[in-house]
């Protein structure tokens, strides 16, 4: 796991390996493979070089094909409607910005209205998840209490619970509170730590923080609240960042619960507005539909660009998407 242990593992066998060992020459060069390449016969080196170039070419081509639909949507959002159905290429022969202006004003409210609604839901969910999940995680990582194992198992299992099993009674509950067509049904559950994925993620992280730190703090007279606020939270920025980025992307993309709880057009979020757009225009205005789809993807893309490190670490440690 740690850097020290991997270097130890990779350097020890290198020392005992006979220098004339050619069997490993066919192996891909690894980080621990520090044997000088000059030892290899010339022909084999050329073949390895050619193989590596071919491999990179294949990987690049594959990546291009994968991203092509996205790039094409971006290009098409600048094309007049008629061209979208004729041009599979990426470079528009005629650039037209009217898709963006038309799309922005195509629905009952300007698109900025839906962007703000989505932003409000995201903001509430972010605060909710960061606060409530870190509190719960502290209890599971650092406190001893009766039934801890049981509650921990309950928490883990709630991660796997399909939302469909609870959505009908939730709808009944929220409509009795007159919360339908407000953002409360989307935000309040996050304030109550129902996104248990993030509890788990933070428990994993908190367990890695040396206990000596809180023991020292306890000796200095700190209680658990201060340890949580002044030691755990400041040291857990990577876990908090991962939580923030995933909450942002999931909430921004979420469709099912927003479709159910938001039915009045002025409360629509971006996904619901887009869906209404498809249904109202049908196949007639792909250009502006693409333009608004691109607008809706930009925040996710920015989160991806700046949060990649945390995203990759997050899915690698918890397996979330």
């Amino acid at each position: 796991m740690t850097d020290a242990s991997t270097t130890a593992q990779t350097t020890t066998p290198t020392a005992v390996r006979p220098p004339s060992d050619t069997a490993s020459g066919t192996r891909r060069a690894g980080p621990g493979d520090r044997r000088p390449t000059a030892v290899r016969p010339h022909g084999r080196r050329v073949r390895a070089r050619v193989g590596s170039v071919l491999k990179h070419a294949g990987l690049i081509a594959f990546g291009f094909v994968m991203l092509y639909p996205l790039l094409w949507m971006l290009a098409s959002s600048f094309k007049p409607n008629a061209l979208i159905f004729r041009e599979p290429g990426l470079i528009p022969t005629d650039i037209d910005l009217s898709n963006y202006t038309d799309g922005w004003n195509a629905l009952l409210h300007p698109f900025s209205h839906y962007l703000i609604n989505s932003a409000l839901v995201v903001l509430g969910s972010l605060l909710g998840n960061l606060l409530s999940c870190s509190l719960a995680a502290y209890a599971f990582a650092r406190l001893e209490f009766r039934g801890k194992r049981l509650w921990f198992a309950v928490m883990l299992m709630s991660i796997m619970l399909p939302i469909h099993v609870v959505i009908v009674p939730q709808y009944v509950l929220f409509s009795q509170l007159e919360w339908i067509n407000t953002f409360l049904p989307l935000i309040v559950p996050k304030l109550l730590a129902t996104d248990a994925f993030f509890i788990f993620l933070m428990v994993q992280f908190f367990r890695g923080i040396p206990r000596e730190l809180d023991e020292a703090a306890t000796l200095d007279g700190c209680n658990h609240l201060r340890i949580y606020l002044q030691i755990m939270l400041p040291l857990s920025m990577p876990a908090l960042a991962t939580t923030a980025i995933f909450t942002f992307i999931w909430t921004w993309n979420d469709f099912f619960s927003q479709l159910i709880f938001l039915t009045r057009p002025e409360m629509y979020t971006v996904p619901i507005a887009l869906r209404t757009f498809v249904d109202s225009t049908g196949e007639s205005s792909w250009g502006s539909l693409f333009a608004m789809s691109i607008v809706s993807l930009i925040p996710v893309f920015i989160a991806f660009l700046f949060g990649q490190k945390y995203l990759v670490k997050g899915i690698a440690t918890t397996g979330i998407k």
Binding site: L67, F255, P271, V300, K321
Partner: peptide, 10 residues
């Protein structure tokens, strides 16, 4: 990247 975007309406 597609994994992040794949669930969206867009």
């Amino acid at each position: 990247l597609p994994s992040l975007l794949g669930g969206s309406v867009a």
